[in-house]
Design a protein around this nucleic acid. Sequence first.
DNA 1: TGAAGCGATTGACCCAAATCAAGGCGTAAC
DNA 2: GTTACGCCTTGATTTGGGTCAATCGCTTCA
Lengths: 274, 274
Amino acid sequence: MISVKAVASDRDTSRPMPMRPADLERVKALPLFSGASERLFRDVLAGCFLQRFPAGTTLLMEGDPVDFLYVLMDGSVELGASWNDKDTTLAILRPVSTFILAAVILDAESLMSARTIDRSDILMVSGEAMRRAAGEDAAFGFAVAQEMAGCYRGLVRAIKNQKLRGGLERLANYLITQRLRQGGGATFTLPHEKRMLASLLGMTPENFSRSLATLADYGVEIHGAEVTINRPATLERLAKPDPLIDNHQPVTDTVTGKAQRERWPLPNRDFRAA
Amino acid sequence: MISVKAVASDRDTSRPMPMRPADLERVKALPLFSGASERLFRDVLAGCFLQRFPAGTTLLMEGDPVDFLYVLMDGSVELGASWNDKDTTLAILRPVSTFILAAVILDAESLMSARTIDRSDILMVSGEAMRRAAGEDAAFGFAVAQEMAGCYRGLVRAIKNQKLRGGLERLANYLITQRLRQGGGATFTLPHEKRMLASLLGMTPENFSRSLATLADYGVEIHGAEVTINRPATLERLAKPDPLIDNHQPVTDTVTGKAQRERWPLPNRDFRAA
DNA sequence: TGAAGCGATTGACCCAAATCAAGGCGTAAC
DNA sequence: GTTACGCCTTGATTTGGGTCAATCGCTTCA
């Protein structure tokens, strides 16, 4: 549970934002929309709105009906779940990402909660418009199917990671993945609070801390959020990264969708529908 | 690892089967295909073939390229994964189910292995035909998206089950779910070997056995594969079933797709694209 | 400049689950 | 029948991870 300071300040209230042309371009660049015709794109985004939320805002609770597809334009969002007074982090999103697409497609209640981590700008797109467009436009329907397939495969990886590996191994692989995603240098920065990473990796903050300390034996130096991997080969011998669990694709400007991440590093057979 | 006795018998070799009209009807009844036109259905299934496999046949290994959508018509199939000499069961399928749809849609390698548990009849549909049809026919593309969304939500439930609950709780909820799926009577039958259920629930066979014994205190009687729940309320107090984790939908003849299961028990807002 | 609050760390302890080992039971092969 | 093998169960032990508690350090705010 992260509490949010209740400050009576304008900064901390959510509010509508003007939608700039640059924002539109970034949305259009998403694989989900990049194949759409100008007309379909306008139809789907008609009535959408961009909104700024303060850090710690609950966008959606588990079980809530889902009326919008959310697109994170700026900031970061945590997807989580809870049961019986326990809770866990299922994913941490960075721009530009869509979320709760599955619930939108099925017009179902959300199985996850969504909360802003930092102040975030979020585009909200009519779920009804999404469903209508996906059912009427073959190319768009296929793009939705591909995006869903990518999300599905991300979860398969997550379950394998969770069921087959121990905490230390999950952490080691997380660090290797982060290193690659941040350019591959020896030093990089943990992108979020350690407590949240612990929850994402399915461990307590205490064990996360202890596991980080253990990794010193494998050449991992920690100073605050700064991580230095001095002996990558040693760490990999422990982590045993596997392309069928870990998605080591570096983050680029041109590749942002879950489906795209899943297709890498395969050669691009005809990707979009002919 | 389940070893298969190598018996030099005709029964134990896979072989093509004639596709009966009744089989076609059962495939057509799947939500994935039920909205398709006769023409699209014929196009997609052109070149498909039905094949009978003996028990224990590996249909697909992790990392294999996926050329076909598989449809389990009869028998049962285990989807699994392994890493570092450990392995785990991700799902156990019963007819009529499709599998590895996500890999087909993205033309990607499989993240899971697939193995027959019993002798099984499996329909193999060209992945290329699936992708082409999904990209050309809006209704079919949307049906694929819905099916993927249903599969996705099934995995979200699985991760929540795994990360938020302990072994005993997972078992208790599994029993409650099985009871409902088998008609809701006090007594029902475990549908698979205990060792496989243990793997599905993320525990060792030893702990599975011990956990079953523990549940005697909660009114659960075990005789072989026969389970009797004498005090459902007591068991539920332990299990704390949650509609956002457990899918308690009873199995019916008319509802078979992953997407359909996810929509229940919501009222049917216009399901198929208008 | 404190004081409060929160995240991170560390240590002591406990519990759940994995491992190792042995034995029972049912089924299939000979 | 009898043997062999696989599955299941049960017990003893170990281990990974969770819980509880105390402390440190940083940031925020009065």
